[in-house]
Design a protein around this nucleic acid. Sequence first.
DNA 1: TACAATTGTGTATTTAGTACACAATTGTAA
DNA 2: TTACAATTGTGTACTAAATACACAATTGTA
Lengths: 253, 253
Amino acid sequence: MLTREELIEFCKEARESYLDNISIDCVVFGFHEGQMKVLLLKNKEEEKWYLPGGFVLKPEPIEMAANRILKERTGLAEIFLQQFHVFGDPDRSKVHNEMYADMLPPEENWFSNRFLTIGYYALVDFFEVTPQPDRFSEVCAWRDMDDMPELQLDHGLIFKTALDTLRLQLNYQPIGYNLMPKEFTMPELQKLYETILDKKLDRRNFQRRILGFGILNRAEQPRKGGAHKAPYLYSFDLEGYKHALTEGFKGGW
Amino acid sequence: MLTREELIEFCKEARESYLDNISIDCVVFGFHEGQMKVLLLKNKEEEKWYLPGGFVLKPEPIEMAANRILKERTGLAEIFLQQFHVFGDPDRSKVHNEMYADMLPPEENWFSNRFLTIGYYALVDFFEVTPQPDRFSEVCAWRDMDDMPELQLDHGLIFKTALDTLRLQLNYQPIGYNLMPKEFTMPELQKLYETILDKKLDRRNFQRRILGFGILNRAEQPRKGGAHKAPYLYSFDLEGYKHALTEGFKGGW
DNA sequence: TACAATTGTGTATTTAGTACACAATTGTAA
DNA sequence: TTACAATTGTGTACTAAATACACAATTGTA
């Protein structure tokens, strides 16, 4: 939480540096221990969490702004990012607007503006992320997707829309390269799909289908040491993967 | 084209009424005589056309802004609109910015701001549209999609992105209710798909597939009077259509 | 050493997609 | 009036994809 002086300073800077009326909010998905995770921020004294977000510098492309914002929250320089929707309800920032209303007069309070927010979703490797709170928060942490806390403003809607978009993209794009470690077993990859879709898939049919996409390479040696039968290790075939990303899976018409 | 005085007046109004840094551009698709059409605007003395667009009023939801803008250009109050992308390259409005640079000093010229533009595409009934130029243009007209003129700014990219999105949506959503007249024949509907996809489809397989979606009703009496065998008339089954819109066609995973 | 848990592989069945053929209708040209 | 071209309606064989389901192999543990 900022002091009044810091807040005034921020508003002054913001007015000079950022585009007005525009913000960016990101839904960052990670995958760990069979669980889909979302990166969220929070103030200690507040109950509600919010999505990592920020603003667009006056000369900055929006893609770059989203990347910059996420680099600050995750430490990652290269992130798979996908713009998915603009949320432009004038009521959406009401709470936001009033957030600092008691601390600042409206003409100084940059947050009293209306903000449209551009939604991005990101797929990242859980282990490579070092969560960093922003200047308005004290906590930045992964939260389980199926145990999501209440979110501020319309961030619940933004999250839901991101998830719906991700599920839709699963039908015509490969997913996983940005979420899985270098090597993984077939059941692990299946678990990713099942988690995103919140649905059980048939083990044997999943394997046939995903192998049919031609985006996987199988290592010669199976993973050893664990209990049970040693599973084969797979990695993504980058060439096939990128081809699938641009061309898509399904023929359609 | 506005006079200098009108322009100054507009900039003053705009600064008061509209959100800064945000614009909306619309790709309006119509279908007529087996041709896909796009609604475009132009100045008499200029060669390049541009997409119908506008700005967002300070208290206005963006969906409503898009609807308002299109009502002014088409006369239609209810339009099927789909937001598809935000274009946020800082260079995108360079030409725009310089457009009135010789007429107005930068501090008065509202257009010298950077604008992100939210892209919407619209599907409309060709016959119900009455094209209306906006205050910056003299011509508002339908243009053939496969004979598109050069467009201003990044409007070429916006159009292409809209078309790509539309083609993708064809794979998991019904299209046509907003583009076809109340009653139509199967070959006419097929022509719409072929035009959007720029691809020939097999007549018999198209029919089986589209009927399988359960979004069409067949009239009892075929159309008469024309040459050749009298074709059956179809209309969209609104219930099935809306269900397909929300649920989608393909099972996917 | 039997067992549970997990992985690898395969095979029928159903469904969806593709390719292609023929009969029926209607205006037009011979 | 009749043959013909153009167009529409309907169907069938073939192929590919999706689904349902079974059994054998491996490995730690009881």
